[in-house]
Design a protein around this nucleic acid. Structure first.
Length: 235
DNA sequence: GTCCAGGTTA
DNA sequence: TAACCTGGAC
């Protein structure tokens, strides 16, 4: 009796109502305009630059990626430049970001792009996902940031924001919940401002709707948030 | 000193 | 569901 859920495979009633979607988009973009961070990979839509930043950001926080991002692009300014480099040198250049499978996979992506895709990064979901190292989040990030497609993203920050605002209770780690968060994110992405909207989601999770002590007092979304007021000292 | 974050893969 | 790395928080 632990599992009792309605057997409706594809519900739409648990998606945010249109009015709440509009409030969410408007409030978030307004917040981003005032408080969003100015990060180097937000000043470009070059697919290679986006790829590098997203692979670096996969398991590494912004502050540690910042210096390495610039250094990397100077050393390997293009997919073909990276493809030409010896793998072990590429791995050394990655230090100290850690998780060294990432530079090997980034390198392999560059070589495959040169070998099979005319030196360009493919833009479609299926091909992106076919690369080792590009999962659901990174594919969405590349599609929205480099190719301006209306693609959703869910990383840890985004998941926390959407869970609190639109779900509120339950176990965020459950597979069904994660799937629901993806559907919510897809429902929220605006047709315009995809780039800014997705960047704003992540900034908001990193700066306001943080894991430990969310800043509900200054949160522009508290009015529609199911988790508000979040009790940081609850346990 | 211990714990934790953080996508993707096998 | 654990393994992968490193630095920062506690």
């Amino acid at each position: 009796m632990s599992k009792k859920r309605a057997a409706s495979p594809r519900r739409t009633d648990d998606l945010p109502a249109p009015a709440d979607r509009r409030r969410f988009r408007t409030s978030l973009l307004a917040w981003y305009g005032r408080h969003g961070r100015d990060l180097p990979w937000r000043r470009t839509d070059d697919p290679y630059h986006v790829l590098v930043s997203e692979i670096m950001l996969q398991q590494t926080q912004v502050d540690r990626v910042l210096p390495k991002y610039d250094e990397w692009l100077q050393r390997y300014p293009s997919l073909s430049a990276l493809a030409r480099a010896p793998e072990e040198q590429v791995v050394k250049a990655w230090y100290p970001l850690g998780y060294n499978i990432r530079p090997r996979r980034l390198h392999a992506i560059a070589r495959e792009a040169v070998a099979s895709y005319g030196g360009e990064l493919p833009s479609d979901e299926a091909t992106l996902r076919s690369f080792k190292g590009i999962g659901a989040y990174t594919a969405g990030a590349i599609r929205s940031f480099a190719f301006r497609q209306r693609a959703a993203i869910v990383d840890t920050n985004v998941a926390r924001v959407l869970f609190r605002v639109f779900v509120g209770t339950g176990d965020p780690k459950r597979h069904a919940v994660k799937q629901r968060l993806w559907r919510i994110s897809e429902a929220l992405v605006p047709r315009r401002h995809v780039f800014d909207f997705n960047q704003a989601l992540m900034d908001f999770g990193a700066m306001v709707c943080v894991a430990r002590k969310p800043r509900c007092l200054v949160c522009p979304l508290s009015r529609i948030c199911r988790a508000y007021p979040f009790d940081a000292d609850g346990q």
